[in-house]
Design a protein around this nucleic acid. Structure first.
Lengths: 352, 352
DNA sequence: AGGTGTTGTGTAATCGATTTCAATGCCATC
DNA sequence: GATGGCATTGAAATCGATTACACAACACCT
């Protein structure tokens, strides 16, 4: 009398397949598939199918679906380090936008390592992803050929040679110029900078600083480092031990700025009285550290959202020529660059 | 004369299947599959297959592989917000550990929203993930039944009722006690706290504070808020406008601590002269903000790594009873709780 | 010699869905 | 009443891999 088939007992340990739903609903598997998707199915059968799905606890197998339909509904997001608040913010924007159009996101960290980049790009191919949003190192950006990859790529934060790939980046020259002009207006002249040595972004921001300084007949001393707080801290400690001291330092991103501040603290210099600090990325903490740090705020959420939008547009029209969207940064002046009229301030300048 | 089959032309637009590799190597598809995996294949044929793979540019289709093998080699990581540095650090640890054993990670943000949690758990089932690492809200933690889900779950940061699921958490009572004892030793008596209202963690840290205070015959005033900087800032601004003012405030996580500091700044109170601040999570910036913030440092990387290890152990032995690993936090005392002997210090206390 | 493993290989079944294709029923039209 | 078109439906092919099974070749024992 008891049924020995895997029928009604709703949460048995066996996984329930579309075939089981079809049997429970008294229809064919094709009808179930169509009812779950958007195929033409009569209201009557659709209701039956929905009831059967609920009764059996059916959950589609995405691997099977992807294999047959040849659509992964997945995009890859390859960044250098998710611990950098810039990338966490961008990734939230990308994820929100992706899930809104029914796509999943695979997130990968490369640690600025070209080998890891190659590995993850290969993984993306094996996953047959719909597209990829990618912040490449300089080395990879140069030899990247999106045609070869089999899926569209949108670069973020860092651009490739023009015409190669879609990209959404900051206007680094303009932003660097904003920082330099601000520092000059505050009376600083001997301006130095610490720039990441792995990306085009570090190079572009450096170029922007040099160009802005040149317009005033000045020179900037630049040093190139691994874009980590640790490297930046060490570089600043070394720098401040040398005879010729800068009046102001510019950091090419938020992590470098963090290390810079640590280095300055360790060296015992007070900010801004003895040394001004400024940099990129309006990370949460920059407002609260010391006298507040002067930064360029990037439209982080916009960058992620725009990248996703460009990816979708590219999917619609694979033939269109590559576009580069350039967004503007905003200068947020704070206490770390407050004045260079040394000795007119209180003993520390940390008040406010 | 020219071959019209999809043979040699190595990067043709058609995707190359295992069948093509087999033909190119002059062997069966089974042999190719075995050569790529770990099956028994003679050295001679293995070499031929490798050559054919290189020549054709073959890339396995992971969907097909997963469908047939019934192994997704994927784990889900469900956190409340990747913008919280605690979770970014944990996620890096999880990813590193996962990729080291050949597993991929799907990362999801729930925004402390039970509906999103349910949605992502369902997604995990559809993906047929190997397992999940999950930081649930209190609501979900209580009704969660890992048996029902079809894959093992390891909870992080927040535990479920005992025996329900594996978990790796901080010793919240101990950590809260460390904070309270430190504040008392510094001379603070009227201690308040802001705790997240969505997780068991907020509740446990609150309970720990209350217990520690009681041991000294004191009471703590607690307020419960959404665990975001915005909510914390507003709560502190409101609090500081009331007649009865606290001497010290404790924040139940890094984001709340951030908002707390903003609120205190906005209210114009100086730290620690007028108000001491302390909290959880040794986020990068806490060392650099104001006089430095006293915090409990969590072993973030360890938490992620341990969670992954427990997940793997659970996969090996699904029958073992649930374990809860409790890790200890470390007190890092900084200037934000420096003294309560008001007026004996300099005008600001920000020096050091 | 004759059985018994062992190793390496190919054929074909299989994973669980989507999609093609043919068939059906119904209605409007000539 | 025959015909054509349209909307639904089911049977079977298909996606691209892994793996069960059969089998051949060869070594190793009594």
């Amino acid at each position: 009398m008891q049924d020995h088939d895997n029928l009604t007992e709703n949460d048995c340990k066996m996984t329930v397949r579309i075939k089981d739903v079809a049997r429970a609903a008294g229809v064919s598997v094709a009808t179930v598939s169509r009812a779950l998707g958007d195929g033409p199915v009569s209201d009557e059968l659709r209701k039956k199918v929905e009831a059967a799905v609920a009764a059996t606890g059916y959950l589609p197998n995405l691997s099977a679906r992807r294999l047959r339909s040849q659509h992964s509904h997945t995009i890859g997001l390859i960044v250098s380090d998710i611990r950098n608040p810039f990338f966490t913010a961008v990734s939230r924007a990308v994820e929100d936008a992706a899930y809104a159009v029914g796509m999943r996101v695979i997130l990968c960290n490369t640690d600025e390592n070209p080998q890891k980049e190659a590995m993850y790009l290969r993984l993306m191919q094996e996953e047959r992803v719909t597209g990829v949003i990618f912040a490449p190192t300089r080395a990879t950006a140069q030899k990247l050929d999106p045609q070869q990859l089999g899926f569209p790529v949108v670069l973020i934060d860092r651009a490739a040679p023009p015409g190669h790939a879609d990209a959404v980046v900051l206007d680094n020259a303009e932003a660097a110029s904003l920082l330099v002009e601000h520092l000059l207006a505050q009376g600083y002249r001997r301006i130095g900078g610490l720039f990441g040595n792995t990306s085009t972004t570090g190079a572009e921001r450096h170029a922007g600083v040099v160009a802005a300084m040149q317009r005033h007949g000045l020179q900037a001393e630049a040093r190139f480092i691994a874009p980590t707080p640790e490297a930046a801290e060490q570089a600043v400690r070394d720098w401040l031990r040398e005879p010729a001291q800068p009046e102001a330092l510019i950091a090419s991103n938020g992590l470098v700025l963090l290390g810079m501040l640590r280095g300055a603290r360790a060296a015992g210099v007070s900010i801004p009285a003895q040394l001004a600090l400024a940099g990129f990325d309006n990370d949460n903490w920059t407002e609260l550290a010391g006298p507040g740090l002067t930064v360029i705020e990037q439209p982080v959420y916009d960058i992620g959202r725009t990248a996703m939008k460009m990816l979708l547009e590219r999917l619609e029209d694979p033939a269109r020529s590559a576009r580069k969207v350039v967004l503007s940064g905003r200068l947020i002046a704070r206490g770390s660059t407050a004045h260079n009229l040394a000795a007119d301030a209180g003993p520390d300048g940390a008040g406010r």
